[in-house]
């Protein structure tokens, strides 16, 4: 079992003929992901990496039954692509693109909410159910089917934690990179709700960072009665206030967004917060085994 994506997910790639789209489609197909269609307006009728390309998402869905989409189109066009996917009946939209204007995201979320479409990202590595479906840009081989669900606001930091979980022999049920922007699709809480109902997930790893209060809100949710063990990490204890640390959403504004406060809220909710990143995998293993 897993959450959101599995071996039966029928994947559509928006922006499939671009440099990133082509490269990562190939990687996803090699991993075993069922990529059934691509969309690039104006290139309908062609093929990319052996995948049929369509002009519109609705055509692609009608022809192939695609139900999940991953978006690689440039920032200026990504909001449009997400809305097109939603309007065409795609159930889950994964937006990899970075630097999408936040006002676009406000509108996209409103559009998707009205149609019941789920979104992951933007500015994220994607989502992977190891051994079944890789949707995004993460290196597939570091993952291993297993017991820990992972939710993260970061990319390479996620890979670090995944790698440690694999080394520790625990593996992962599903790993979700929520994205590093101020407004993202599914958040910690929605994903925790899904992991709660997933029998394959024995514990959840929650990787946060400075900025906003998503970790605090997730901690409050967990405190109300999330009954699987949660292990946390928060990046940015040494980050100076008022500076954007790479991710658009990673900024301490005034008194909000500090790593210390997030860690305190998480510990108060019974989450095991690992402070030394290098010990994450070992800590989870020691508690679960």
């Amino acid at each position: 079992m897993s959450i959101l994506v599995d071996k039966d997910s029928r994947v559509l790639v928006q922006g499939i003929t671009g440099r990133e789209g082509l490269f990562h489609t190939e990687q996803m197909v090699t991993y075993g992901t069922k990529v059934v269609a691509g969309v690039t307006p104006g290139k309908g009728g062609t093929e990319a990496v052996g995948v049929p390309v369509f002009n519109t998402v609705s055509e692609a869905v009608a022809a192939t039954g695609a139900n999940v989409s991953v978006i690689f189109v440039p920032a200026g066009f990504a909001a449009d692509a997400a809305c097109e996917a939603s309007e065409s009946g795609i159930e889950l939209v994964v937006v990899i693109t970075e630097h999408i204007p936040v006002m676009d995201m406000i509108r996209v979320k409103s559009f998707l909410r009205a149609r019941g479409t789920r979104m992951i990202g933007p500015n994220c590595p994607g989502i992977i159910t190891p051994g079944e479906c890789k949707l995004g840009i993460m290196p597939g081989y570091i993952h291993q089917p297993g017991r820990v669900g992972l939710i993260s606001r970061s990319g390479t930091l996620t890979y670090e934690v995944v790698h440690q979980l694999t080394q520790a022999g625990l593996g992962q049920s599903t790993c979700v990179g929520m994205g590093g922007d101020p407004i993202t699709g599914m958040g910690f809480i929605e994903l925790l709700e899904l992991f709660a109902d997933d029998p394959a997930t024995e514990a959840v790893a929650m990787i946060g960072e400075i900025g906003g209060d998503a970790e605090e809100r997730a901690a409050a949710f967990i405190k109300e009665g999330f009954d699987k063990p949660v292990f946390g990490f928060v990046a940015g204890l040494t980050a100076p206030p008022g500076k954007r640390m790479g991710h658009a959403g990673a900024i301490i504004s005034g008194s909000q967004g500090k790593a210390e406060d997030k860690i305190a809220a998480m510990e108060d909710a019974g989450i095991t917060v690992v402070r030394a990143l290098g010990e994450f995998g070992a800590t989870v293993a020691a508690e679960l085994n």
Binding site: L157, T238, A239
Partner: peptide
């Protein structure tokens, strides 16, 4: 020097620790 913002922050934190 790190690849990725989250890992870069975490690396700073680890140095401090």
């Amino acid at each position: 020097m790190v690849n990725g913002a989250g890992l870069a922050m975490a690396t700073m934190d680890v140095i401090k620790m």
